[in-house]
Nucleic acid binder design. Structure first.
Lengths: 111, 111
DNA sequence: CGTACACTTAACCTTATGGTTAAGTGTAAT
DNA sequence: ATTACACTTAACCATAAGGTTAAGTGTACG
């Protein structure tokens, strides 16, 4: 199993690897539907820069855009995060402390 | 809260955004302690390329290296993944209640 | 109509990423 | 001592990422 070419996971993790993009997602987590210019406003960078971030997020499937008149509203689509989460989940036992693991054992294997 | 400069999270997600690096971590998840050349062997790229990947993983704190004689053994350090997991955890409600959201969409988008 | 507004695209720049080959360092074995 | 081995570093290359300014598209409004 040399090739592990999970392009979707690549894109998801890459999209999450930037603080501006995480902040955009956080905003959409709080606000549900926000226009592009409203999204851009708090950041000290230009609108085209934000556009590029939004494109990265779209390509990763993390946001959806819908045009209404001349404004475009963005909303969160967290589904791809579930795959990232699942990948990480496989490593959970490596950071759980011994006590956590003990608790896990007790929970999952009673008696 | 414009600045969300979580450099560690940047590095963790960026490190995870490459299939070769994820495969290296997977190997270390299975094998606990593996030398650099053993790690590199399955991949169709040069050893220096793998070195760069290992450096990225080290910089993200995801692996630890220990030199013994002329061989360097690498082991997984999953701790930084916990922070990534925690970040993702905040969005869990956006995909775990997907059926509810689907119903919501159907309600709010009459065709 | 014309103009302002919301967004997008284009062109460009700088730095980072992922790869290469070749050379260097230090330890082990003959 | 010499040679082989395991890894590292250096130098280079092509492409991608993240930013800029300027120009373009399309919708709304006076």
């Amino acid at each position: 199993m040399v090739k592990c070419n999970d392009v979707d996971l690549d894109r998801t993790f890459a999209a999450l690897a930037d603080p501006t993009r995480r902040a955009l997602l956080a905003r959409l987590g709080r606000e549900d539907s926000v226009s592009v210019s409203e999204l851009a406003e708090p950041f000290p960078v230009s609108l085209p820069a934000i556009m590029k971030h939004l494109n990265v997020l779209s390509d990763a499937g993390l946001i959806l855009r819908q045009k209404t008149g001349r404004t475009v509203s963005c909303r969160l689509n967290a589904a791809p995060m579930a795959d990232a989460m699942e990948w990480l989940h496989h490593y959970e036992r490596f950071w759980s402390t011994r006590l956590d693991r003990l608790a896990d054992l007790v929970e999952n294997e009673p008696s």
